[in-house]
């Protein structure tokens, strides 16, 4: 009668992070790239909660709380930037954003 071992959770979080990183590298749509960043943040959150349970320390959960808030702020600003870019140019792909190129 034991809990699921923390190694399983950590492996799952690593897999989730890997999938998110892969999507971030592969996809061209900036919105989907943003969602992949969210996947990676969730993997980190899962790791924090797992270590909080393994080490019997509430600080890990407190960190997850702050990560959630910062992620919300990040999404707000990021989506605002995406909307502003869309107003200038009607593209959704990251390849077309070369405004700064001389």
């Amino acid at each position: 009668m034991t809990d699921v071992s923390g190694a399983w959770y950590l492996s799952l979080a690593a897999a989730l992070f890997g999938i998110g990183a892969f999507g971030l590298l592969v996809r061209r749509n900036v919105l989907v790239m943003f969602m992949c960043v969210e996947l990676m943040l969730n993997a980190a959150n899962l790791t924090f909660v797992t270590f909080a349970r393994m080490l019997n320390d509430i600080a890990g959960q407190a960190v997850v709380f702050f990560v959630l808030v910062v992620a919300a702020a990040e999404v707000v600003v990021g989506l605002a930037i995406i909307v502003a870019i869309f107003r200038r140019r009607r593209e959704a792909t990251a390849d077309d954003l070369h405004i700064l190129r001389g």
Binding site: Q61, F65, L68, V75, L79
Partner: peptide, 24 residues
Amino acid sequence: VEQRADFLAAVQVIVYAGAIVVLF
């Protein structure tokens, strides 16, 4: 929830699934 983080699970659903994805 499985790892005794009930509050974070609730915040996860409310903030992430309820607000962030709706924003997306």
